[in-house]
Design a protein around this nucleic acid. Structure first.
Lengths: 410, 410
DNA sequence: TTTATTTTCTCGACAGTCAAGAAAATAAAT
DNA sequence: ATTTATTTTCTTGACTGTCGAGAAAATAAA
């Protein structure tokens, strides 16, 4: 709010850092051109960042033309590390990433289904995190962010999992669990939010789109997720993930895993589609897990023109379509990307999805938003997580670091 | 994005101006305390603002205690004027407001129903605006903003009315209409958005709430409007108005004025309620206008226990409740204020509205948001408009004005 | 070896904020 | 009536950070 010279310094440092993230190895001149900062300011900032071992200078192969060759700057990989953890239904994936965004290590621990208690999960979780540093022989103090993703409803502000399809009713406070051992930033984020972020980052595309609108990313799976991401008007990317799958389509509808009736998920999640296809009563307890092969079989049958399975997919698409139509009403028309393991059934869902979007008043005055399919959800989530965590680190930790701070450290 | 000393200056000037808006007549010291700027900075800025005739100094009655008495600053009323115009179904209201926010003049021109063409409306509109300055003997050049409000769907970025219940299908571009004569800022805003802004501004309440969450304001009338406003994290208030009334509740539902079927408005707008109460077929053409007395009669009958009218109001409430439940899913739990001429029927609507909100997954993890009634919608809209227009003027015109600019002017 | 070209770095000017203390204006005390 | 205490406003010099201009560096072409 109030602006002083400190604000100025931090903001321009952050600008240089974000330029480097965007353009990759980048010279003095390129930073100046892209950011609009004068050459002298860039000099001052890069010199300081270099002295703080945040960036490294690379003499570059004198590629083309005459004149003094450019020297390019890159992030110092050892400057910081982040741990990204993805909690899935049957396993937890741990990844270690350095400051350049390079994956250094990754492993996956299968969930122990013989002991489904939350305590057991927590113990395994702490152990897994420990293993991530010990395997790489890395001082735990060098990890600056632990970024956890999960499906489900996440608290705002604090890393607390309020409700997830994985742990039924258990509320998990990761701050509480990890704080004793880890004095770092701990974040918990809905995984589809990160997928959306990665999609938006890609939409920035040719690296010259300073402003681009919101993008929605829909994850189809056993449950339904939605993430929305776009530029925040200041060069950063903002994102969020509403509990789309549990918006109520019809209060008298089929039973959902969350306990409510008629959620979007209860129609359009795998278990919802299966229930309709097999004409199981709508108030029967939802299946915990459905192998993708089972869904493929139903899809096969629908593609061959079977009535009931076709109806199941059409209904799923209609409910999603109405949900997306409401999204467009609330937040404006925006492109949609469909991902998740259910994306392979897009051919069966799209017609009914599109027809509902097309009817929307807002859409009628804009134009029909494009719908794209992105099969590799895992990759989207990981990339989104890394991008978001590094951007956060750059803006809120590295950029604010003063020269005096580093002197005192050394 | 890039920050220089100019950015610094503008931002701190804007901070001083917004502090004055918030606290009213305010002394040097108070500005410094509230804004966090040092005394010397405040001196420099107020001196400049004073020299530019943007603010005036008022010697104050030595009220309490000893010590040098405070001198307080106020906005110079003559510094700028804004015209606010509200387009209603049967009339247009013109108001002239000075830089302090004081209403200087107001009149209303009834709509000519014998000639319903858009051309006729435009001609009357230009004439009315002309009259606003001539009546006050004010040089038109001193008006800096023309802020128009209407119901309906408004274009983002440009002052274009895309669709409104008032002009059926006519698209009106106010920029195009007014630009030849008026070289000023022209804005067109959904009126409920301004109502929401006024509600949020009030929520800032005791003037020390730097951060306050979003607030939703629901306008019940012949049509249904929704506005959302909250702080943007930087001391400013952001707001928007989704086309809530035309979100589709049920694609096979009753006919709406917008041409679609099953919009929220088609159930819960006055004509929707009336249609249900009188068991008129759901696909009959909606009434253009319903006198409030007619609605009072139906409400009376419902309050006395009549079946069909009770059902009409309950259904209206349920559809609104489901819509608000979706709002809470998309944008988080937030307090709701109900206004508009239909607010007087809140007793009949609230039970079913609340029951749907209560069921929402998001709400279950937060807490039931308070619902308040605010009868005077006209006042909300006017205040919201003035606050928004003046804030915009302060931030984007006055704060950016340099000393050199004013010298060149004089 | 010189010249042209491109990039990086350096220096002085400039704008804006801030801390500290001077100046101003009043009430209370003597 | 004069002095003292108190509070507020204004002024001055130091500091931080950005910018423009031009110097210095490093290379290809002449």
């Amino acid at each position: 709010m109030k602006a002083g010279s400190e604000t100025l310094r931090v903001q321009n440092r952050a600008l240089v850092l974000s330029t480097m993230r965007l353009l990759g190895p980048v010279s003095h001149t390129e930073i100046s051109e892209w950011s609009g900062l004068s050459s002298s300011t860039v000099s001052a900032i890069t010199a300081e960042l270099e002295q703080q071992s945040i960036i490294l200078r690379q003499e570059q192969i004198p590629t083309a033309g005459r004149g003094r060759p450019r020297v390019s700057f890159v992030q110092n990989p050892d400057c910081a590390f982040i741990a990204t953890i993805r909690i899935i239904y049957d396993s937890v994936q741990y990844s270690l990433v350095d400051y350049t965004g390079t994956l250094k290590d990754r492993f996956e621990i299968k969930r122990d289904f013989t002991d489904q208690s939350t305590e057991s999960f927590i113990a395994h979780f702490i152990e897994g995190l420990e293993r991530l540093t010990s395997r790489s022989n890395l001082d735990p103090a060098r990890i600056m962010t632990i970024s956890i993703t999960s499906k489900g409803l996440v608290s705002r502000g604090a890393p607390v999992l309020l409700w997830s399809p994985v742990f039924d009713d258990a509320r998990i406070d990761f701050e509480e669990i990890l704080r004793p051992r880890w004095k770092v930033r701990i974040t918990l984020t809905n995984e589809t939010r990160f997928a959306a972020r990665a999609v938006a980052e890609k939409a920035r595309g040719d690296k010259s789109n300073r402003h681009f609108g919101d993008h929605a990313t829909l994850s189809l799976d056993h449950s339904i997720g939605l993430g929305i991401a776009g530029d925040d008007g200041q060069g950063r990317i903002k994102s969020f993930a509403p509990p789309f799958g549990h918006m109520i389509q019809n209060p008298d509808g089929p039973l959902c895993r969350c306990g409510s009736k008629g959620c979007i998920e209860a129609y359009s999640g795998f278990y919802g589609i299966l229930r309709t296809a097999f004409e199981v009563p709508a108030n029967s307890i939802p299946a915990k897990f459905i192998p993708i092969e089972e869904m493929e079989k139903i899809a096969q049958s629908a593609r061959q023109g079977d009535n009931m399975t076709t109806y199941a997919f059409r209904q799923a698409g209609e409910v999603i379509g109405m949900g997306l139509s409401r999204l467009h009403s609330f937040l404006g028309t925006m492109p949609i990307t469909i991902t998740g393991s259910g994306a392979r059934f897009a051919d069966l869902l799209l017609p009914s999805i599109q027809s509902h979007i097309k009817n929307n008043l807002q859409v009628r005055f804009d134009e029909m938003p494009p719908i794209e399919i992105e099969m590799d959800e895992t990759d989207l989530i990981f990339r989104g997580n890394v991008q978001a965590s590094l951007a956060d680190l750059d803006q809120n930790v590295i950029a604010t670091r003063s020269l005096r701070d580093t002197r005192n450290l050394g």
